[in-house]
C-alpha cells in the first residue's frame, strides 16, 4: 500500500512495530512519515503519556503548547494537527474512540509523586528517559507531553478538574505521522491526581503502513 498517496507501491516501506507497554512503564519506538501510529488502552481508564521527538533533530519535538495555539484550542479534537516547537505538523489525530485527552497537564516525575505520597515509583518523565536510553538516545530536553485518555475538565472560568477517565478496554487513538520521529508512550500512575484508582495497566503502541484491522 502506498503511503500518503505519494510513494510508489514498489518502494520499500518503513518497518512496522508493535510493543506492549507494561503498567507504569514506558516504551519508545520509531514512527515514519506516512505511517499510522496507534495507541491502545488495553484494560481501560489508563492515561497514556505521549512524547514525540523529531528523528533527525532532537531539539525539535511535539509541543502541546504550540499545538494549542496552532488550532486556538485548549482541547485535542479529531482531525487536529499536532505540531512541534517549530510549528510543523508532526502528526494528525485521525481516529479516536474516546474524545477525551489533555494538552495542559505536566508529566509526572518521581519528585512530584513523592510529594504526593508515592515514594517508590518513578514518573513518566524518568520512564520516558529510560525508554529513550534503550534506543541509545539522550535528549537535550524532555518536552511536555500530550496526555492521551487523561480527562481534565476545563470550564469557562479556566478551572481544571481531574475527572475519572472515560476510556474502556480496547479504546484507542490513531495518528497519521507526518515527520519521522521517536515516539515515547508511558503508562502513567493511575491513582495520582484523583482521576482513577488502582495499579497502572498496560498499553499497546504500534505503527502500521496501512489502516489497522
Amino acid at each position: 500500500m502506498p503511503l500518503l498517496m505519494k510513494s510508489l507501491t514498489t518502494e520499500e516501506l518503513p518497518p512496522e512495530i508493535a510493543v506492549e507497554i507494561p503498567g507504569g512503564k514506558a516504551r519508545a519506538i520509531y514512527a515514519y512519515q506516512g505511517q499510522l501510529l496507534s495507541i491502545v488502552d488495553l484494560f481501560g481508564r489508563q492515561p497514556a503519556t505521549l512524547f514525540a521527538i523529531v528523528k533527525d533533530d532532537l531539539r525539535e519535538f511535539l509541543s502541546p503548547h504550540h499545538t494549542r495555539v496552532f488550532s486556538n484550542s485548549f482541547l485535542l479534537t479529531l482531525g487536529m494537527r499536532l505540531v512541534t516547537n517549530r510549528r510543523r505538523p508532526i502528526m494528525v489525530l485521525g481516529e479516536d474512540t474516546v474524545s477525551t485527552h489533555d494538552l495542559l497537564w505536566p508529566a509526572s516525575d518521581a519528585r512530584y509523586l513523592s510529594s504526593q505520597g508515592y515514594t517508590k515509583v518513578t514518573g513518566c518523565a524518568e520512564n520516558a528517559q529510560n525508554a529513550l536510553k534503550e534506543l541509545g538516545i539522550s535528549l537535550p530536553k524532555l518536552p511536555d507531553p500530550v496526555n492521551l485518555f487523561l480527562n481534565i475538565e476545563l470550564d469557562n472560568e479556566g478551572n481544571l478538574t481531574p475527572k475519572e477517565l472515560k476510556s474502556s478496554a480496547g479504546d484507542h487513538v490513531l495518528f497519521r505521522v507526518l515527520i519521522d520521529c521517536i515516539c515515547v508512550v508511558s503508562s502513567a500512575q493511575k491513582n495520582v491526581g484523583d482521576w482513577s484508582e488502582g495499579e497502572a495497566t498496560a498499553l499497546k503502541v504500534s505503527t502500521s503502513n496501512g489502516v489497522p484491522g
Partner: peptide, 26 residues
C-alpha cells in the same frame, strides 16, 4: 518558571493575587 506545573498546582489556567508560581522542580 513552569506554566504546566503552576497550572497543576492551582488547578486553573489562570492565576491571581495570593497564587504562587512554581518552577519545573515544583
Amino acid at each position: 518558571i513552569s506554566s504546566v506545573r503552576t497550572r497543576r498546582h492551582l488547578r486553573s489556567l489562570f492565576f491571581g493575587i495570593g497564587d504562587t508560581l512554581l518552577s519545573n522542580y515544583d
